[in-house]
């Protein structure tokens, strides 16, 4: 495996982002609020543009300062997580558009797909979008240059903590 420079990635910020996406989307479904799903899509889109977790501000400004959630800094590649958020944004944008145009089954299916993928990442430690990124990197697609951290299955959460 080729050596590469990993960066410090705070997985608590990613997890907060995922839990916010899950919670808000489920609330949007229960209360039949396509506007809330669209809001989630918008935040994910802004996060993708700024290269940060969309709901990371909740972690940075609320959870972290009050020590309600501790940092979980791992040596990792941020790029696959960004790609994963872009994928999530596209699904959410498509889902929201479908809801506004009256395709409720398609719309909520896409929203639930994002919920399922975010839950798999938050609770199972497996990032499907990251796995897709690494898969595309294997085919040397332009822009997909990173390899999974050593000893980590593509998409799984790395186990190497800061300073280890």
């Amino acid at each position: 495996m080729a050596s590469q420079t990993l960066q410090k990635v705070d997985h608590s910020a990613l997890k907060t982002n995922q839990i916010m996406i899950i919670s808000l989307n489920i609330l949007a479904f229960i209360f039949n609020l396509p506007i809330l799903a669209a809001f989630v899509a918008l935040v994910m889109g802004i996060g993708s543009a700024l290269k940060i977790p969309g709901f990371g501000f909740v972690y940075e400004n609320l959870l972290k300062p009050r020590s309600w959630m501790k940092p979980d800094v791992l040596d990792d590649n941020p790029e696959p997580h960004r790609f994963s958020q872009i994928l999530g944004f596209l699904f959410m944008a498509g889902g929201s558009a479908a809801l506004f145009f009256g395709s409720t089954v398609l719309g909520w299916s896409l929203v639930w797909l994002v919920v399922a993928l975010a839950a798999l990442n938050a609770f199972g430690g497996f990032c499907v979008g990251c796995a897709v990124y690494y898969w595309l990197a294997r085919f040397k697609l332009p822009g997909f240059t990173k390899q999974p951290p050593a000893g980590t299955f593509p998409g799984m959460k790395p186990k190497v903590r800061e300073g280890v």
Binding site: M1, A150, G151, K159, V160, V164
Partner: peptide, 11 residues
């Protein structure tokens, strides 16, 4: 395990 697995060696 694998030879290049750092957490395997350290933990």
């Amino acid at each position: 395990t694998t030879p290049d697995c750092i957490p395997c060696k350290t933990i």
